[in-house]
Design a protein around this nucleic acid. Structure first.
Lengths: 234, 234
DNA sequence: TTGACTTTATGAACATCGTTCAGTACGATA
DNA sequence: TATCGTACTGAACGATGTTCATAAAGTCAA
């Protein structure tokens, strides 16, 4: 940090604001590292304070809550998520490839930011009784879901799966992807199959589902029974 | 409860053992209700004790931990789930139909026992760092997963998808199914597509994935790229 | 430089948490 | 009736998230 000896009044208050932002960032970084290493629940505010050599009470000058700390971290990392997905899908040769790359980017991101992923997607939103509704409209989550919707829409428009309902497909895709990501994080000790093989298998299944989707939009709901009849009795 | 006035010595100790089991059950029921209503983290041992009108310390005569309490509840849930699935799949005409019915039974169970489902599958297992591993081998959870594995194995053996790796497929199926179930429960306010349509869409996708699986076991990992090439450039 | 005012940081405290343990009450046995 | 073992409890411990009065430091007009 620079040592400024003679300030104009305005420069002084500027520097104070800058310093405040800096301390705030310092807290976030420390908290982020500890949460990632040992999990949100088992990291105390006192330990975060100790790491940055402040008193525990100081943290409450910068953040409302311990939860607020994590939420701010989530905002940060999910801005990164969108950035990451867009970077991975930018130069895809076609819509389906873009969709696939985006999904892989999502899974990778979740697995490398497990704590933030759990808080945003896995934990039930109601913390206490009478907790304020956190709005979905305009959230980073919505932005993220729209990313998936538009990627699937592009595939449909490109003729990959002309008959699908984009919203339904986006929901089930998200469900599958989230299912794998969250289970791998939460049930870490489960005797999973090989991780990459599972991701590949899921991607293959999702794509196969797209390609096998009904060619006309009308009769989507009967398809399972049709497939089943074809297979089991033919 | 019967009032027994004259016991033989053996009958007396029997009754005491029975009473102990009864209290144990009482604790589990109370804990289950509270966990379901307000979540594991925000229910204290003291509140559970208060509900059954015992002292907090009494609970530790029956359970090692607060976490142990949760684990016992999960065992119960698994047992119910297995029973439900087996009832639904018992008279299936063929393996694929059995698999499909089992999966639907799983989702239905989750959606109609949302709180138990969350406690068992969604909430991260409560262990500190360096806590002893709770063994998966021999647990009811393993039994449950084997149920899915064997259903998928039966499909493979029946020629539905000869080339698949059963374990990998079981894992990804569970991930997808769990993803949908848990998201529908946890993010209740999310603007989902029609619920039944989503379930149908997921089932269709999973079955399509099975049918499109590689016919030989060797080259599973390349299938996504193959499918994609076929679609986007043809 | 002084003195008033604002911002930043802290130590002590509060309520609550999971958990333990010495000690009590009580039914079963002899 | 006396003894023994089990079931149970009250009080306490250390740790948690959070608050608040207070102190220190910084800012700025005079």
């Amino acid at each position: 940090m620079n040592i400024v000896q003679y300030d104009t009044p305005m420069a002084a208050s500027d520097r104070r604001a800058r310093h405040k932002q800096q301390v705030r960032r310092e807290i976030l970084v420390a908290a982020g590292e500890l949460f990632a290493q040992e999990g949100y629940e088992s990291v105390s505010v006192r330990r975060i304070a100790e790491k940055i050599e402040y008193s525990p009470a100081a943290i409450y000058l910068y953040f409302k809550d311990k939860a607020d700390l994590l939420n701010q971290l989530c905002e940060d990392t999910f801005a990164q998520l969108i950035e990451h997905i867009e970077a991975c899908t930018a130069d895809a040769p076609d819509p389906l490839e873009g969709l696939i790359r985006g999904v892989r980017a999502y899974i990778d991101f979740g697995l490398s930011h497990p704590d933030q992923y759990i808080v945003t997607f896995v934990s039930p939103p109601q913390h206490q009784h009478g907790a304020p509704d956190i709005p979905f409209e305009g959230s980073v989550g919505q932005q993220c879901f729209r990313c998936l919707e538009s990627a699937i829409g592009d595939c449909r428009d490109a003729g990959v799966a002309p008959g699908i309902d984009v919203k339904t497909t986006a929901c089930t895709w998200w469900a599958s992807i989230h299912g794998l990501t969250s289970l791998l994080i939460v049930h870490e000790r489960f005797p999973w199959a090989d991780r990459n093989q599972m991701i590949d298998s899921l991607m293959q299944t999702l794509v196969a589902g797209l390609l096998a989707a009904p060619r006309s939009a009308a009769d989507g709901s009967q398809t399972v029974e049709e497939s089943e009849r074809q297979t089991s009795r033919g």
